[in-house]
Design a protein around this nucleic acid. Structure first.
Lengths: 335, 335
DNA sequence: AGCGCTCCCGTGAGCGCTCACGGGACTGCT
DNA sequence: AGCAGTCCCGTGAGCGCTCACGGGAGCGCT
């Protein structure tokens, strides 16, 4: 019952030897009691357990980990846990890791690319592998992860690392096809506000659009927030009032656009159809529910963990072609 | 450049001694090179670094942790990362932990109370402290966390553990006051669907309601989902068509109610005012934006980490009265 | 009595690393 | 030449734990 808390004085760590001495046995016997091993008398075992409890003993995970090489800890690095997409990815990774009994240390870089390197440096000496969504150049990544399995998420270009690729080409094509079938001919896109070049999702959009013989130049960059989506939509409609449908970089932007459309008095989907990307659960909460090119985030997490497992065990790693999550059009109320 | 991956054969761990041998120095010199210590020639240092890289050496966190007692890892146990409230709590805790250079291992029990014990058992030998939202009885908690600092979140009754208390009394009072000021007299509540007794939030509501001289008996239990909120609202309105305002257990339920109200053709807030609880960021995404009794989740996370720090260092712990996060009415479009 | 067996328990070794110390080689000074 | 001082580098010890082994005590059997 008495848990001796360190009261300002030297909180010397209680070791297995202290317990052994207190119980009048050897450290090995203590170890046996604690780990539920066989070769121990049940009376002795209870005595040891009591002593351990009385002293407030807790085994050192370091010492144990040093001798038993079984605990696996992987680091999950994401830009922003509050971004629902990454929340879903994280939840999926946690779930997949749990089935293997792995620990997951989560690092949120707060959308600051410069934090990535610091995080990576810390991480590199704390985990057995890394799963993450990085924006820093590959060379930097490589520098801090020497010899450690790394699985990237949503990295567009092929790298020397494993990467779970997100392929939305077919899904976006289906989305545009759907809009065209509904009679839309003027379709805009609210892209992600990247520095220079448009996103790969924009590429998918333009290919799909031209394949359907419609103009694909109606693009406005948007901040990756609901507000960003809203103002981008306003901007788009101001320049091109004849636009009747928009495809967005992701669901957050789409939801912002949805909200803005309502404020502008445009009914959805009659006067403006909206299709997002990601397929967040969140999309079902807004009204009307969001049509989206959905990603299977659970599969994404499972794939990442699976690949880490293979890299770690030296098994044959999954080929790049198997590490793909494809977007799939999920029809709902907004288009 | 060559990173010798374990190719099916015995993936023997490369130790500091291997690097030392390869570089023709002692292990201590290797340690010096890797840890950026002083007493080493820069040429030697480079040679060691090259050797380490060539061998794909990565220091063992266990061995390092065993001798340097500085890395702190805390476990964060939450029922469901996909529940936005817990996402915010987790993000806040991560942020607060980061400023201290602590690692955070996240465990998602998937809303299954029986998982809590298993998780706790694993956790108890893997982290230095636990922050979590548990539903299991205190006695069970105690059994698995002997001698380990534990900080609970939102635990209603006082326990022998530290707990960050959520006090919504004043906020809920303000919410009811606001509704009354708007002329509402028939105010319902969509409570959390607990087993037996109503939630403490419901208590706050009834006290606030009776204080304003209005009937507080209009309660319907709801699943903690948007759909749950929707059907609970439908049920409430079916039984009591004269209800013009609802207070909900949390924002998710409120958002579901909002959606359902729209479907029923009730305009918000004119024909139905809705006030939620939690103050999720999510509330700003729906239309109209949600009025809510908001919790400062960042403060919640910071408090939890702060308390853990004190428990860990043996400093004087924060008193229960300081470990309170108070709900505050945040007015928005829905009421 | 002697053997083998089971049931407990303890001892040495070692996991991979860092800390404290010691000591050689070289410099510059008296 | 002799000495202190600086700059490197290596050696023992030990962090706290588990594994492999050895061995004593007690039993029943031939």
């Amino acid at each position: 019952m008495v848990v001796p808390s360190a009261t300002g004085t030297e909180p010397r760590k209680i070791t297995i030897n202290d317990v052994a001495k207190s119980a009048g046995v050897s450290r090995q016997t203590v170890s046996r009691a604690l780990n539920d091993k066989d070769e121990i008398d049940s009376v002795t075992k209870q005595r040891v357990l009591d002593a351990a409890r009385a002293l407030g003993y807790r085994p050192s995970r370091f010492a144990r980990g040093l001798v038993r090489q079984d605990t696996m800890t992987i680091g999950l690095v994401i830009p922003d846990l509050l971004n629902p997409f990454f929340t879903e990815v994280a939840a999926a990774a946690l779930e997949a890791a749990r089935t293997r009994g792995w620990q997951v240390v989560v690092y949120d870089t707060g959308d600051r690319a410069e934090e990535e390197l610091g995080t990576l440096q810390v991480i590199s000496s704390q985990v057995d592998a890394v799963i993450g969504y990085f924006s820093c150049p590959e060379s930097e990544l490589e520098k801090f992860t020497r010899g450690m399995p790394v699985v990237l998420i949503g990295r567009e270009q092929r790298t020397r690392f494993s990467a779970i690729q997100i392929d939305g080409a077919a899904g976006v094509h289906a989305a545009v096809a759907h809009l065209v079938a509904q009679g839309h001919t003027r379709i805009g896109m609210l892209d992600h506000h990247t520095r220079a070049e448009p996103s790969i999702r924009h590429e998918w959009f333009t290919t799909a659009a031209t394949a359907h013989g419609i103009e694909a130049g109606l693009m406005v960059p948007a901040d990756q927030t609901a507000d960003g989506g809203g103002s981008a939509l306003r901007e788009l409609l101001a320049d091109h009032p004849d636009v009747t449908a928009v495809f967005t970089f992701n669901d957050i932007i789409a939801i912002g656009a949805l909200r803005e459309a309502r404020r502008l008095g445009r009914s959805i989907p009659q006067e403006l159809a909206v299709i997002g990307f990601d397929g967040l659960q969140l999309g079902a909460l807004v009204e009307p529910p969001l049509t989206s090119v959905a990603l299977d985030t659970r599969r994404l997490g499972a794939l990442a963990i699976e690949q880490v497992a293979r890299l770690l065990s030296g098994e044959e790693a999954l080929a790049a072609d198997d590490l793909v999550v494809r977007g799939e059009l999920r029809l709902s109320g907004s288009a």
